[in-house]
Every structure is written in C-alpha cells, then in structure tokens.
Design a protein around this nucleic acid. Structure first.
Lengths: 140, 140
DNA sequence: GCTTGCTCCTCTAGCGACTAGAGACTGTAG
DNA sequence: CTACAGTCTCTAGTCGCTAGAGGAGCAAGC
C-alpha cells in the first residue's frame, strides 16, 4: 500500500500543507486514511485530485466552481455542459477584468507621465486623484 | 456652518455609508464633528477627501497606499517622488495582472474550443484540468 | 401630541481563500 | 537518548468591505 505524507503531497502537487488541510475541510478532498500515529496518507487518486484543484485554482476558478467540476469528474457519464458553462463564465470574467485593468493602465500611465517630479503641491498624481475631472476616462 | 449628513456624503462621494464609517475607523478620514443628536457632519474638505479616496480605490490603490497618498497631500511641500513611486508600483502590478489574465484567457479559450459538448468522460475542460500536460502554457 | 417611516448610531459577525501561530505529538537520524 | 523536522488540532488574522441586530433621532402627516 503506497501512500505519501501531507508534506510529500504538498511537494508533488505544489499546494502548501495548510492549504491541503483547508481543502479537505472545505470538502474538495475526501478525508484520507491515517497512519497509526494519526497522520494523513495520500494515494495516487488523491494526488491527482490535488493537482486538478491546483490547475483549476491557477485558472481562477473559485472553490464552489471547483467543487462542481470535481463532482462532474466523479460522475463521468453526465453531460459536460455544466463544466462548459463554468469555464465560459470564468472566461467572460477574465475578459472583463482585462478590459478594466487596461483602462486603469492607461490612466495610471497618463498620471505618471504628467508628473514633473517636483513637490506634492504640483504633483500630477495627487492632482488627478483630487480632481477627477482631469482624468482621461470620465466614465467612472 | 454648512455640512451634510453621512447619507448625503455617500451620495456625493459615491461611497456607501458603512464604507465611509469604515474609512474613518481605518484612519483615512479624520473623525468629523457631530450634531447634538450624535450624527456625523461632513464639510467640504471631508467631502473632497472622500472623493480622493474613491478615485484612488477605483485605481486599485490599497488602504495603506491611500493613507500615504493622503499624508502627502496633507503636506504639499514635500517631494512628490513617494507618490510617484506608489503610482509606478501600482502600474507595474496592473501590467503584470493583465499579462497573467491574458495567459488565462488563452488557456480557457483553448479549453472551451476543444470541448465537444458530449459527456464528462470526453470533456476537454475536465481533461485539461486533470492532466495539465495538455494545456498550452506548461510554465505553471 | 402621536405615529409612521426614514436615516442614523454602535457593535458584532461574515465573506473568500488562505496564512500564521500556539502547543502538543510522532518519527527518524546521529 | 536527544535533537529536530514533520505533523496534529485549533484559533485567529489578513483585506476591504458588507450585512444584520437593536436602538435612537428626526421630519412630515394626521
């Protein structure tokens, strides 16, 4: 019966030890068996599940979405359209975020470019924040 | 002596009432005077400060950064280089975030495009999450 | 004067996804 | 045998709010 400790699982999966315990608590990972000394033992399937979770987190899926995706994975006969729709929602969110961040980038660049590096009294950064009418995107 | 209620201040500044109280608690806003009935009264300078805070938050500056920016604003004789550097840091952060989100976008699009809308057993979304070797950016 | 209904007050607790730390135990290498 | 790394559980903290409880102030209508 092979199986590894939580520390080894952390190394393999790239998820920190306390975070693994946290995922267990959140119900993403079934409670693993323990050694006589009460230590968690992770088998291959658990390690795969951990890796799945890490990838999903890296793609920005939240715990709820991951729970659903894992449930789907556990029942492979079902239609994949829920998984598809979760991924699409996530994509839309990412696209929107990029849009917003690009607008911020533009505004920050304008702010910084206008700064003459003198005193605060003349600082463009402070000025723009004080009087937003001076900013490039008056929509917000 | 003109001055407005917290509700009016919220309307004018675009910051919600509890959030204004929260900012006061966090030390971004000096404690305003009160009416006999113990209600906060906001004058012009406080309203301007609130607007400053809102703009800064919209640009993604965190509370600590805003505290510094406000301190600088309160002492306009100083060099503006700390303000400049806060803004530059923020810009760098935004640029990095955009980069990461774009990579996510690409990967999510690939995932979704590959999905044949059949069952989970054949779902590309689940597959990619399970076996990350299939993903386009093997760097993470 | 009295009621209705809105705004305001303080205080505490919750969100999400961890992270940090305390204090105790286990397991292993020298 | 001792040192020390790893693990255990539990609680509390992070950030920037947000929600709710339970109470008080205040203006308008009757």
């Amino acid at each position: 019966m092979s199986g590894v400790s939580i520390g080894e699982a952390a190394r393999v999966s790239g998820i920190k030890v306390p975070t693994i315990r946290y995922y267990e608590q959140m119900g993403l990972l079934p409670e693993p068996p323990r050694t006589e000394g009460n230590r968690r033992v992770y088998d291959e399937s658990r390690l795969r599940r951990l890796t799945f979770i890490r990838h999903a987190r890296e793609l920005g899926f939240d715990i709820g979405a991951i729970r659903t995706l894992l449930d789907l994975q556990d029942n492979p006969g079902q239609s994949c359209s829920p998984a598809d729709s979760i991924a699409r929602q996530r994509l839309q969110d990412v696209v929107e975020r990029i849009e917003r961040l690009k607008a911020l980038q533009t505004e920050l660049e304008r702010m910084i470019a206008g700064c003459s590096h003198a005193t605060i009294a003349k600082c463009r950064v402070i000025e723009v924040l004080t009087d937003h009418g001076q900013c490039g995107t008056p929509t917000h």
